[in-house]
Design a binder for these strands. Structure first.
Lengths: 332, 332
DNA sequence: TTGTATGCGTTATCAT
DNA sequence: ATGATAACGCATACAA
């Protein structure tokens, strides 16, 4: 980029005004005569001049950049979620004159975030994944970085938004209970995410609110491998489960395959549903009743919240997005 | 972001030296006494000090930013590819002191790129998808933006890299021919990407080099819908195809499902292979022989090439990465 | 309303 | 070997 482009100084000289006047004409801040402003603006337009943002950043310590924090890669199946989120944020950021930077973190290692913050390369951050230990978000808070978290954070001060996972899981479970299913097994895992706790909470509350019998032996919340899922499934069936409710599409996919391989038919032998529809894994299980969420919109909203906050017109600290229950063959 | 981090000035005062000495100690440029350098470096380490890259960039007229151009979302199945690419680039960028920005383009609309370029927010770009019309890359070239393209660009000047898709498709086809299969149908689509031309070229050259009979009626290169794939498949079978070679995992997935629904067994009734293993779609077709590519490495290499070029130590204009043929049940 | 002067944190060119 | 000092391009408090 061998850009020998002009500066506001050049423009000032050319037009016989001072740099500050040019600066004001561009930024719109401070008083300026409408005539001189128009003259400057016209010249700028003619020359297709643009400010050097690096200098702008150094002087004003603003960047016009937002960073989006993505988790480390663990599992391919989860990637589309974050990418959708990113695209949503990208859309809103662009529309508001911001650019998007990306950075990864596993929730503990803040090395990369650090650089962005120290170097003042960003105005704010979007955290796309939250953890129960709150380590990452605490770090940001401590460093005074404006940020919004996608997912629950156990801190009232933190701007956050998420889909109503509790509500979705609860409505889904309630629906199943109303269908006369009363031995609904729950299959979840133990990743340190609020998400998973919320879904289980919905499952539990649906039972409580409906005064339905709750059988703890049908609950599996530490399924961190395919074999664990399969084992739990077999146990649940032995215990007389009439329905399998999965925490997410990933678990659902494996459970589904296992059920088929056991020679069980869905829905005639056993019903099945998932608290999360997912985007890709449902490739092989498109006929499963599940809760659906608009991730693109999640990204958009997150970015909007952050930008509003950066511009000082912030009111909302927390936001809950709606879900949609999609009924399919698996619960007929 | 009320960041009150220290500067080299603070360090200079604290240690009773001048800022330039501190700068030299850090950069390693210019003469400096080993004793004072060690003292400064030790202090820096103790305080965990890091240069402010914005200031550094202003002085050096650099940004320390690299943008990665992602395609618009069309199809969920392709997203993991770009995300992997992005993670690879991210890894290398970070390791070299660069930060990564993201921006989308459909290959025609350069609106978002434009802003990044005009505002001088980046030092270079990585284009993750190339098109036969070369519109996007021409635009970048015209604007003097240093960039590297992932995928083929029909311009010797353009830094580019890609996996050896021709070679992979050719080796795969050769392998099939050597298994005695001589009616290998080819299923591809007509998206404007070099990739697809390359794969077909490999298929063709394998036949030519082996002096194998080439039946044009087994070639389908304009399959842009599921129904088109299914229709082509039926035609191919009628024409006596003994093997289905798919351009990529996406087409392969649909073809596979269709074959199964037709009551055909793989591999006893018909063989099957894919020129691209994909990352997610293979969920339902894990037993298909295919060419495998390391996308993470692709992203890493792309970023490395760009950074080398930015630092002036560029030699290579073009790079080809290796592939791997993975044999599975489908061709046994 | 406009101009002047100073600072942002670093690099680089001079001196010393 | 080290220290002043002037850029880098812009923003802003202050003066005019």
């Amino acid at each position: 980029m061998e850009n020998k482009s002009i500066t506001i100084n050049d423009i000032a000289n050319e037009l016989g005004v001072s740099t500050s006047t040019v600066s004001r004409a561009i930024s719109g801040k401070g008083r300026i005569g409408s005539e001189t402003r128009d003259r400057i603006l016209a010249y700028i337009k003619e020359k297709d001049f643009h400010l050097n943002t690096v200098a702008q950043n150094l002087a004003g310590s603003k960047t016009g950049n937002i960073a989006i924090v993505l988790p480390d890669i663990n599992n391919l199946e989860e990637m589309p979620y974050y990418q959708m989120c990113m695209y949503g944020a990208m859309e809103v950021a662009s529309a508001n004159g911001f650019d998007l930077m990306i950075v990864t973190s596993d929730g503990k290692d803040t090395r990369y975030l650090d650089r962005l913050i120290r170097n003042r390369k960003i105005d704010g951050m979007i955290v796309t994944r939250t953890y129960t230990d709150g380590r990452l978000t605490n770090y940001l808070k401590l460093n005074g970085v404006p940020f919004v978290a996608v997912g629950k954070v156990d801190d009232e001060d933190v701007m956050q938004l998420e889909h109503d996972h509790v509500g979705a899981a609860k409505e889904l479970t309630t629906l199943l209970l109303m269908k006369g299913l009363h031995k609904i097994a729950y299959l979840g895992d133990d990743r340190e995410q609020w998400l998973n706790r919320n879904r289980y909470e919905g499952y539990e509350r649906a039972h409580r609110d409906a005064n339905a019998p709750f059988d703890n032996s049908l609950v599996y919340r530490r399924l961190n491998s395919v074999s664990a899922i399969e084992a739990a499934l077999e146990e649940a069936i032995k215990a007389g489960a009439d329905c399998i409710l999965c925490q997410d599409d990933l678990i659902c996919k494996f459970a589904y395959k296992k059920l088929i391989s056991l020679g069980l038919d869905i829905p005639s032998d056993i019903k099945m549903a998932s608290c999360y529809e997912g985007s890709v894994s449902f490739d092989s299980i498109t006929n499963i009743t599940a809760a659906r969420f608009d991730i693109l919109e999640l990204g958009r909203s997150a970015c909007k919240m952050l930008i509003d906050s950066l511009k000082g017109k912030n009111e909302v600290k927390s936001k809950i997005l709606e879900y949609q229950i999609v009924l399919k063959e698996s619960t007929k």
